[in-house]
C-alpha cells in the first residue's frame, strides 16, 4: 500500500507512557485513546494530526509498558505507518498484531513537517519535501502476512474458517 502524509517527528526512546499515559488507561475506548495520543511527548498532537500523517522517530520507539493501547492510539489517530530507527520489542509485536505498519529506517534526514510517500510493500520512503529516497529494512514474511490479514485476530479468524486451528 502507498500512503502520503506529513511528518510528526520525535526523538529517541519515546516510551509508551508518552504515547498514551497510564492515567488514561482506565478507558480503552477509541475516543479516549485518540484524544490523548502522544500527549506527554506533544500535547498538541491529537488536535494537529490528520488522517494519513506519519510518526517518525529515532531509536527504541515504544519502549516500556506492553500496553497495546499505544499502537492502537496511533492507529485510531489515522497514522498508517510509524517509521523509526528501531522499535522496542513488545511495541513492534503489538503493532503487527493490530495491523499498524512499522518500518525501520534511518530517519535522520526526515524533519518535522516533511511530506512523505511511503510504500509498505517494498519499504520505499520518498521524502517529497527534500526530494530524497530512503529504504526501510524488509519486513519478515510472517509479519507481513499478519499485517496484510489485518492483524493477528483476523489471521486467527481465517485459520479457524480453514479448520487449521481451534
Amino acid at each position: 500500500m502507498i500512503f502520503k502524509g506529513k511528518v510528526f517527528k520525535f526523538g529517541d526512546n519515546i516510551d509508551t507512557d508518552a504515547i498514551i499515559p497510564a492515567r488514561y488507561l482506565n478507558d480503552s475506548s477509541d475516543e479516549n485513546l485518540k484524544k490523548h495520543c502522544m500527549e506527554d511527548a506533544d500535547p498538541k498532537f491529537s488536535s494537529n494530526v490528520s488522517k494519513g500523517d506519519f510518526i517518525v522517530a529515532g531509536n527504541n520507539f515504544g519502549c516500556g509498558s506492553s500496553r497495546e493501547h499505544a499502537p492502537r492510539a496511533i492507529k485510531i489517530s489515522g497514522v498508517p505507518v510509524v517509521i523509526a530507527k528501531s522499535f522496542a520489542r513488545i511495541f513492534y509485536r503489538n503493532s503487527f498484531n493490530i495491523g499498524l505498519f512499522i518500518l525501520e529506517a534511518d530517519t535522520d534526514g526526515i524533519d518535522n513537517g516533511d511530506t512523505l510517500e511511503v510504500n509498505t510493500e517494498n519499504g520505499t520512503i520518498k521524502n517529497l519535501t527534500k526530494n530524497t529516497v530512503i529504504n526501510a529494512k524488509p519486513i519478515p514474511e510472517f509479519m507481513s502476512e499478519l499485517v496484510s490479514a489485518g492483524g493477528l485476530m483476523e489471521y486467527a479468524k481465517k485459520k479457524v474458517k480453514e479448520g487449521g486451528l481451534g
Binding site: 500496553r67 497495546e68 509485536r93 503489538n94 498484531n97 493490530i98 493477528l152 485476530m153 486467527a156 486451528l165
Partner: peptide, 18 residues
C-alpha cells in the same frame, strides 16, 4: 515474556502463540 492484549486473546483461544 511480555506481550500485548491481542496476543493474550489469541492464547485464550488457541493456547499457543508465535
Amino acid at each position: 515474556t511480555g506481550v500485548g492484549s491481542t496476543d493474550l486473546a489469541y492464547v485464550f483461544a488457541f493456547g499457543e502463540l508465535w
